[in-house]
Design a binder for these strands. Structure first.
Lengths: 243, 243
DNA sequence: CCGTTCGACTGATCCATGTTAGTGATGGTC
DNA sequence: GACCATCACTAACATGGATCAGTCGAACGG
């Protein structure tokens, strides 16, 4: 796979037009590529590591565990997303990370990243955009938990995931492949898995969308957008910003 | 008021030991100081401004409005906190800002800030810490909305506020002054104001804490911490990190 | 001084969602 | 082939919190 086809490059170029030089600087960043099995925790918790990753393949979630034993998933990472960027730049991160599928991730050394930023400002702009989009997603997620009911939350979540996946060429407005279990959805949306099941059934019966056997189908995209009050603006996906 | 006594400096020095030179660089940052009346929206929404503020006096909240007319408060800013740092560094922010009390804020020009960072790395570290603490608070807030019930959320919120205020010398483990209405609490905690009232009454009757007439009193700090499962770790308040 | 607004506060009712306790299908493993 | 774990799915029941519909007191503008 050439750099241009990597999910990370696809995501960035959707936002900032990158020159060939920018792209080759990007490919120089990629260090050792590692694989991790699904399920077992990568447990970055409490560690302060000097290395971050760019997820090349597979899905990951970051979550916090509560004393009661329940957990809250803060967000999901898909190919092209950073893993552990914060724990490089800031202090040790306080949440845990679990691979949902088998994953492949390329190491990025903090120094290399900062050097590349100095030489290629557009690259820096693109990465900052990605980071700020991720933050906007957390805020939107928070709004959902506070003020949207279960069907809206679910619809919003699936639409957001769909939009992110489309950006890296892993989905269309018709649907996308999705390895999440109903338990993952429950932990992300602050619901019980029982209720997740009910809500999914209702969305299906209402002809809005169908989630079955690892695949999400948008049965009526526009009506789902309306029901979920989904506003793409916060994802900032409407074409390159810097030409 | 000397720089050292400003809430911003107090907050930073609680985390990173700053030299006299660092502190004077800090005081050079402060630009024009402006006042805003309570209530009227500062409406940064959709604007991309080149100026941020450091809140010197008063309380502010940032929130998102939903189509249904309800709102979700994302967080509160108190003296010493940044206002609009994100909209300087990143793209236009998509939430609104409302002063809760009359406020005073000093302008910070983005360039000045970046220059100061280059010259005084410890200052940069301190500001980065502040930014990452704010993010950690948003995540913790999200966890609360997803997985804590109303009394825990309320307790957690009041304890967090108390800890932040103590850092800038505006509160103790006994309590603090708090200009928030029960509507503010409702919008922040994802509850109805009716339920906020009930929960406050219950906390009072249980001898945990009392919120009345603009004042929060911790009646039994330790028991409240336990009830709310409040873990200070994410605030990172345990003394200076860099000596 | 009166009327208006706003915030704290309450009781009654209802419903969205949680909890408990299952069934059945699938796939992996020894 | 037996066993086990995991996941989707369901029904019955319980409940936290929303909603509705107020009262009351304080602050405020005219």
């Amino acid at each position: 796979m050439t750099v241009l086809e990597s999910p990370f490059a696809r995501k960035l170029t959707a936002f900032v037009t990158l020159s060939d030089d920018d792209l080759s600087a990007l490919s120089d960043l990629y260090g050792r590529r590692r694989k991790y099995p699904a399920g077992r925790d990568m447990s970055h918790e409490g560690q302060k590591s000097q290395v971050a990753y760019i997820l090349a393949e597979g899905w990951v979630c970051s979550y916090k565990l509560l004393p009661s034993g329940t957990r809250q998933i803060v967000d999901f990472q898909i190919p092209g997303d950073f893993l552990g960027l914060r724990s490089v730049l800031f202090r040790t991160s306080d949440h845990s990370v679990e691979p949902i599928t088998r994953i492949e991730a390329s190491e990025i050394r903090a120094n290399d990243l900062l050097e590349a930023f100095a030489k290629r400002p557009r690259l820096a702009a693109a990465v900052l955009w990605a980071a700020s989009r991720d933050e906007a997603m957390v805020v939107e997620h928070l709004v959902g938990l506070g003020r949207r009911d279960a069907p809206q939350r679910m619809g919003h979540f699936l639409l957001e995931l769909g939009a992110r996946l489309r950006l890296i060429g892993r989905g269309t407005k018709a649907g996308f492949d999705c390895p999440l279990s109903q338990y993952h959805l429950a932990d992300a949306l602050g619901l019980s898995s029982v209720h997740v099941n009910r809500v999914l059934r209702q969305l299906r019966e209402d002809g809005l969308c169908t989630f079955r056997r690892g695949r999400v189908e948008f049965d009526d995209y526009e009506r789902l957008v309306e029901m979920a009050e989904f506003d793409r603006a916060y994802l900032d996906h409407e074409g390159p910003l810097l030409k």
